[in-house]
């Protein structure tokens, strides 16, 4: 028996919105530590890694490890039927070929359940090596979303250059060029609003705007985002989800010809 109940059901709605543009199907791996999802997009340019810890749920039971392959468009359709304040419960029997989503309104007067067929996905599990990054940048997630949106008007690619002075986002295209520089916040009153840079070595990398814009669909999950960069390795864009886990996106850099 698997059962995961979340009073803040809107988190699951937001998680689906944050991954469904990148992935059409994925496996939810459930064990007694929680729920993990890890999948590359079809073109193997980006990878999504989601972790929701068991202790972040209001009720969590997983008697046997279970891997549930799901069509994410179908899951997104179902979760759109949940109210923002609904409690969401996912449940499945051991060895089941379906999963059930139950939505309860705050006053318990409306209870809906949606049963969905599971898919048999034969997906590879990937090991993500522990990496020491040359630069990490923490910044408000809404600011990062704004920068990605604004710069994608100028070109398909965005250059992210991090030095100890700050971080510069640049794009160049037919209409001209755009540069946005963020300095590290001098004094931190509210950590959520701060730009904090940790740098061992300066790094400049180029990324596809389209993917960065997909990642920013996770903005509503966290007030802050963390970017981790080293030369010639994938960028990591991490949104921490309060008290329950995180969603991390990995993106292969563009390579100079």
């Amino acid at each position: 028996m698997f059962e995961a109940r979340l009073l803040r059901g809107s988190i699951l709605k937001k998680v689906l919105e944050a991954i469904k543009d990148l992935l059409t199907q994925a496996t939810f791996d459930c064990d007694d530590s929680g729920i993990q999802l890890q999948a590359m997009d079809n073109s193997h340019v980006s990878l999504v890694s989601l972790q929701l810890r068991a202790d972040g749920f209001d009720k969590y039971r997983c008697d046997r490890n279970i891997s549930m392959g799901m069509n994410l468009n179908s899951v997104a359709k179902i979760l759109k039927c949940a109210g923002d304040k609904d409690t969401v419960t996912m449940k499945a029997q051991d060895n089941a070929d379906t999963v059930t989503f139950v939505f309860e309104s705050p006053n318990q007067e409306k209870v809906s359940d949606y049963e969905m067929k599971l898919m048999n996905l034969d997906l590879e599990h990937l090991g993500i090596p522990e990496t020491e990054y040359s630069c990490t940048i923490r910044m408000p997630s809404a600011e990062f979303a704004r920068i990605c949106r604004d710069l994608s008007q100028f070109g398909d690619s965005m250059v992210i250059a991090c030095t100890k002075e700050g971080v510069k986002f640049s794009a160049t295209g037919e209409i001209g060029s755009a540069n946005i520089k963020l300095a590290q916040t001098a004094s931190v009153d509210k950590e959520e609003e701060a730009v904090i840079i940790e740098m061992d070595e300066p790094v400049t990398l180029t990324f596809a705007c389209q993917y960065l814009n997909y990642f920013t669909k996770a903005t509503s999950l966290s007030p802050q985002v963390q970017l981790s960069m080293s030369a010639d390795v994938p960028l990591v864009v991490e949104y921490r989800i309060q008290d329950i886990g995180h969603i991390r996106y990995y993106l292969a850099p563009k390579i100079e010809d």
Binding site: H44, V45, L47, L126, P129, P234, I255, D257
Partner: peptide, 14 residues
């Protein structure tokens, strides 16, 4: 100009 890199090779199949 630039070409899009791929993730294959960065991660190992486990």
């Amino acid at each position: 100009s630039t070409t899009q890199g791929r993730l294959d090779g960065f991660f190992t199949v486990v």
